[in-house]
Amino acid sequence: MKRTRQPSGKSNQDELPSGSQSQASQNPSQSQATSLTQAEKAAAKLDQKELELKVNDLVQYLLIMDQKKYPIKKVDINKVVLKDTSNKAFPLVMKRASEKLADIFGIDVIELQDKQKGSYILISKYEIDADKPNVVWPEEDNTRMGLLMIILSLVFMNNNIMQDSEMWHTLKKLGIDPEVPHETFGDVKKLITSEFVRQGYLEYIRQPQTDPSIYDFKWGQRAKAETSKRNILHFVSQMYDVSDPQQWTSQWQDKENEEEMEVSQANSN
């Protein structure tokens, strides 16, 4: 997923190791003028210091906004960070900020797709070593991830879709009742159908023409980015004490397809 940096004419002052991209010219107006995109032209109007400030502001803004795990909207970035600066500078500032996040913090910025285009989420580049976890999470985070893992497993193992009635029925076995406030999770229905949905972990979609309404649970875009079908299948296999996850034929196939997709995407990039 590593993006190669295009010589933008501005990156020469970048303090980051930029390796082979260092051919960026000292003066953009001379050698690069013809290849400048609209965004780069807009950014060229900013002076070097101002651009650097905006990039740093954006890095800080993204890190802070990620705390709630809600996708960060481009509109808000323009409003809060770029403010009076031309919005056309967004692509370049965003690109530079993404590079900084990747190189310094080990974080990938990912733009969501389809209806959520124009929203961004931050994903860690590296998986945590399961044997030596080096990150300590707040208790609330841990409990929620436990629940989320179960829900994602259920959806994935159930052909990537599960009706709400079946979900609630299953979760009741864990003492989770959508109608009853939960000791650990509080309003657990709200957590699952609203908070997890807003964060992009789940999709909660009403089936058309159902009365009373029937909803389906699916994986959200953040779940697809943060975890993988392989991880989920591994987790489920652990629960069943099976050494060979291939016994779930269709799920295994699904996982294989996902990995193939990723490989082909990586190659095309």
């Binding site: 990620d66 945590i128 985070d141």
Partner: peptide, 27 residues
């Protein structure tokens, strides 16, 4: 009993599955 799972249990499950997610660490 009565199908309740304590917060600590949820927490330890969460800790165990965190490595499955490439979540950005808290800030």
């Amino acid at each position: 009993e009565d199908r309740t799972i304590s917060t600590e249990k949820w927490c330890s499950l969460g800790k165990a599955v965190q490595p499955s997610f490439k979540r950005c660490p808290p800030f």
